[in-house]
């Protein structure tokens, strides 16, 4: 399971992580090694068709529809690195625009 530099870069773009030129070879090598190691689970044929297991309650519980927000000890203006007139500020959107839903 060898991961190419290009694949690492593609994944890094999806994850919005900057990967430097220098870090790339070691990262690709380590990822390859880890993926090779974890891929051994594909050697277990018995797992085909098994229903996935997730711990915790069997079914979702619901809360009542009432306005009852969890209080904040201080507001977004204190949290935010950039905030103005009630808005969070980020640098202008470059390559992408319009929300995806």
């Amino acid at each position: 399971m060898s991961v190419t530099h290009d694949e690492v870069l593609k994944i890094a773009r999806l994850a919005e992580l900057e990967v430097s030129e220098e870090a790339l070879p070691l990262l690709a090598e380590q990822m390859s090694r880890i993926l090779e190691y974890v891929a051994q689970i594909n050697a277990v044929p018995a797992s085909e068709g098994v229903k996935p297991f997730v711990p915790g309650p069997d079914a979702l519980r619901f809360r009542a529809d009432e306005v009852k927000p969890i209080p904040l000890a201080f507001g977004p203006e204190t949290l935010a690195p950039a905030f103005k007139d009630g808005f969070f500020l980020v640098p202008k959107l470059g390559a992408f625009e319009g929300a995806d839903l």
């Binding site: 891929a39 689970i41 797992s47 068709g49 098994v50 229903k51 996935p52 297991f53 997730v54």
Partner: peptide
């Protein structure tokens, strides 16, 4: 190959 398979493995380990 990875995530779904791992979820199934998890079931076998729990079993």
């Amino acid at each position: 190959a990875y995530y779904r398979k791992a979820q199934q493995m998890r079931a076998l380990i729990a079993q």
